[in-house]
């Protein structure tokens, strides 16, 4: 089956979500589908203000599996980020991407949740053990490292 065939079989829901993401993007978030595969999205999230990620532009990839929306989208950070709930491969520890997924959630709500996770790191439930430890033992320093990483890797270049 070619990519073109797959795209013609795209569920209406995905088409609608895509249209709305493009026509009414959420503040600080952009998501656009790949031309070759309309289930694959290039995502950019701006670091929330008053967070160590402020000023950063973070790239992510998002893929809608065949079962979507009965199964959660697969999302990963491509830009390096220092965050206790995001590991060194960019994978995100977020319950709605796992067992708390609901088909009433959407691409938009998932990305808003990830944006919120940047504002509220949760070192008590870590994915990146070392970063979480850092966060808990010396939060000020960890936040500074997160700022530094944002400058180094997410400056939008």
């Amino acid at each position: 089956m070619s990519a073109a065939t797959a795209n013609t079989n795209l569920p209406r829901r995905i088409i609608k979500e895509t249209q709305r993401l493009l026509s009414e993007p959420a503040p600080g978030i952009s998501a656009s589908p790949s031309e070759e595969n309309l289930r694959y999205f290039n995502v950019m999230i701006l670091g929330p203000s008053q967070s160590p990620y402020e000023g950063g532009v973070f790239k992510l990839e998002l893929f809608l599996p065949e079962e979507y929306p009965m199964a959660a989208p697969k999302v990963r950070f491509l830009t390096k980020i220092y965050h206790p709930n995001i590991d060194k491969l960019g994978r995100i520890c977020l319950d709605i991407l796992k067992d708390k997924w609901s088909p009433a959630l959407q691409i938009r709500t998932v990305l808003l949740s990830i944006q919120a996770l940047l504002s509220a790191p949760n070192p008590d439930d870590p994915l990146a053990e070392n970063i979480a430890k850092h966060w808990k033992t010396n939060e000020q320093e960890a936040v500074e490292t997160a700022r530094e990483w944002t400058r180094l890797y997410a400056s939008g270049a």
């Binding site: 595969n37 390096k80 890797y153």
Partner: peptide, 25 residues
Amino acid sequence: RYPGGHAPPPGPGMYPPNVRYYSYH
């Protein structure tokens, strides 16, 4: 392999593109 083969090149500050991020757990 990214769909459509348009995986972003692993530039500075980017995670390697060859991660099957979707099934890790």
